[in-house]
Computed example of a mutant assay.
Amino acid sequence: MSRPPTFVPPACARPRTLQTSRGAFAVLDAMPTGTVKGTVLLLPGYTGSKEDFIAMLEPLTAAGYRSVAVDGRGQYESDGPEDQQAYAQAELARDVLAQAEAVGDGPVHLVGHSLGGQISRAAVLIDPAPFLTLTLLSSGPARITSGQQSKVKLLSDALAVMSMGEVWEAMRAFDPPEETAAPDGEDLRRRWLRHNPSQLLATGRQLASEPDRVGELATVQPLPKHVVSGERDDTWPVPLLDDMAVRLDAHRTVIEGAEHSPNTDRPLATAEALTGFWDRQDRQH
């Protein structure tokens, strides 16, 4: 589970509701004070939320990029239905297309973390026109590792017979004492309880069965691509991400000192890598 450094947005970010053709989504909308170079759409991963990008919003806006971090349907503060079919990957991808249109600034830079990266890929494969670039942040070419698949199955089995509150208490029982006593525990619990279990069940299956679509994505041109990860990753091994970048002819960045969530582990270094990539694309055009 991702662990944002805080759930309190910086002064540059406004919590609001983004109205789209496919419904309403909770977002953090961070606006630069000066010239706006472009707009960024940030998609969180499995069990995550828009708050996973909260420590990146100030450096992104300081570099001139309006940054909109989104709770997808059924994630945290964005409502979603009980029907698991509503969370099919194609449905979530079309949500992203609607979000990109609704921010209202023309084509956007798209960033997806983990599950959000695979949803981002699906959106680009439906229609690349709304996107200036695509960044896959700790998001691999196909299904997650067997160890992570086992964890997702364990969670899914629990969700089938237990309430979200009961599952939370069961998960906490496996945490070391220092984590259960951490001051952000109540924020994490509140976020967990607001996730729709149907969304977790449906997207968990997606993570465990996602096919390799790198070849399809590589044919989407011209769309500059960026593969970012930490030095270690137990969800998709780093050599697999290295290979994916080669297959995509993508820019590759490894964030030192980070693991599966560079956006929370090393937010300043991650923001610098992203803005550097976007700035280079702007100079080349």
Rank of each mutant, 00 (worst) to 15 (best):
A63Q: 06
A24N: 12
V40G: 10
M56F: 08
E58I: 13
R66T: 09
S67I: 00
G48W: 12
K50G: 07
T35D: 14
G23W: 02
I54G: 06
Y65M: 11
R66K: 12
G64L: 10
V27L: 07
L57F: 02
L60H: 02
D52G: 14
A26H: 11
R22K: 15
E51I: 04
A62H: 04
V27P: 03
D52F: 03
S67V: 05
G38K: 06
Y46G: 05
L60K: 01
T35Q: 14
I54S: 10
E58K: 13
A24H: 11
V40F: 09
G38W: 01
A62C: 12
E58Y: 06
D52V: 05
Y65I: 13
S67Y: 08
Y65P: 11
G64N: 02
K50H: 14
R22I: 11
F53A: 00
Y65E: 10
G48C: 15
L60Y: 05
V27D: 06
F53L: 01
E51Y: 13
E51C: 04
A62T: 13
G64A: 09
V36W: 00
P59V: 10
T61G: 01
E58R: 15
G23Q: 04
V40Y: 03
V40P: 05
L28C: 06
G34H: 13
A62R: 15
R22H: 14
S67W: 02
L28V: 02
I54V: 15
P44S: 10
L57D: 05
V68S: 06
T47C: 07
R66A: 07
P44W: 00
Y65W: 14
A24F: 01
P32Q: 06
P32Y: 04
F53V: 04
T47A: 11
I54D: 02
Y65H: 13
L60M: 12
A63I: 07
L41H: 04
E58S: 15
V68L: 01
T33N: 09
F25M: 11
F25V: 09
G38Q: 08
G23F: 00
V36C: 14
G34W: 10
P59S: 09
G45T: 03
R22G: 13
M56V: 09
E51T: 12
L43K: 05
G45A: 10
P32T: 00
T35R: 14
E51N: 15
G23D: 03
L28T: 04
R22L: 11
P44Q: 01
E58A: 14
M56C: 12
A55I: 10
M56L: 06
T61K: 07
D29T: 04
G45P: 03
L42S: 09
R66P: 10
L60C: 01
V36M: 12
K50Y: 08
D29S: 07
I54E: 06
G23P: 04
L60F: 02
A55K: 10
I54N: 12
L41S: 08
T33P: 00
G34P: 09
G38P: 08
V36L: 00
M56K: 07
T39N: 13
L41T: 01
D52H: 11
G38V: 05
A30W: 02
E58L: 11
G34T: 06
K37L: 15
G48F: 12
D29G: 11
L60G: 07
G38L: 03
E58N: 13
A30R: 04
